[in-house]
Amino acid sequence: MKKLLRNVLRSTWVQRTVGFVAAEFLRLVWLTNKFSFEPANVYELVEPQQPAIFAFWHGQHFMTPFIKTKPSHRVKVLISRHRDGEFNAIAAERLGIGTIRGSGDHGSAFYRKGGVGAFKEMVRALADGYNVASTADVPKRARVAGLGIIMLARESGRPIMPFAMATSRFIRLNNWDRTTINLPFGRGALVGIESIVVPADADADTMEKLRLRLEIILNEATRRAYAQVGRPEEAAHG
């Protein structure tokens, strides 16, 4: 039975159907939640710094495609090669976001999960004027920023833009990253605090300090986003 279910989930028609439905559901969520922005002129501040690396936490990612509000906002997102990644990739592309397949983990699985090719593709995308979006934490280590995104900023010379998005109505799963499924007909918030620039000559000590800084900023942005939609207690349990 498990094998049959696995084969069904891997079938192209199921993946495309789930991806399509997910994309259209998220579009409904975006259209029916009244979003606030912090700072209010966030797009005016960010646009001159593009292309940039947009960073967010695992499990808080479903609304992130909607940071793209203009055709000129060209974005590619890093999505894992895992089976679940297929649904996410189809949904992202349906929402006008390009995809890069591979892992952002620079640990022992970096080569096996396509990390090298994905890293090079992200550097090329940034050089070609695309924004790149990626989770800052790596699988199974929720809310712990990895070095991969810091390495990408150092190699590309582009700034990291940490941000968080939250909605007042959601379902939270009991998995490793406490995935939040945003729901329609409520309030939403997008919070960005400050950008991070990694010098081209950054040594290991500097990169570790910037990794910790990224972690702090993302946690604070997440806290503020939930507070703005009236769910302040949720950030601490994310």
Rank of each mutant, 00 (worst) to 15 (best):
K2I: 09
R10N: 12
R10Q: 06
T17E: 04
G19V: 15
F20L: 14
F25Y: 10
L26T: 09
R27K: 07
L28Q: 03
L28P: 04
W30I: 03
P39C: 13
V42W: 15
I53H: 10
F56Y: 11
Q60P: 01
M63C: 08
M63H: 00
K68V: 09
K70S: 14
V75D: 01
K76C: 06
I79N: 08
S80W: 00
R81P: 04
A92W: 01
G96A: 05
G96E: 09
T99P: 01
D105S: 05
A109V: 08
K120N: 02
M122E: 04
A127H: 06
V138N: 01
V138Q: 01
A142I: 01
G146R: 12
G148I: 02
G148D: 04
I150Q: 09
I150N: 08
I150S: 12
M151H: 14
M151E: 12
A153I: 05
S156N: 08
G157M: 04
G157L: 08
P159C: 07
F163P: 05
F163C: 10
F163N: 03
F163E: 01
T167S: 12
R169M: 06
F170M: 08
W176Q: 09
R178A: 14
I181K: 06
N182P: 08
G188H: 08
A189E: 12
A189C: 10
I193G: 07
E194A: 13
D205V: 03
M207A: 00
L210N: 08
L214I: 01
L218R: 12
N219Q: 15
Y226P: 06
Q228I: 15
V229S: 13
G230P: 05
A236H: 11
H237P: 00
G238D: 11
G238V: 07
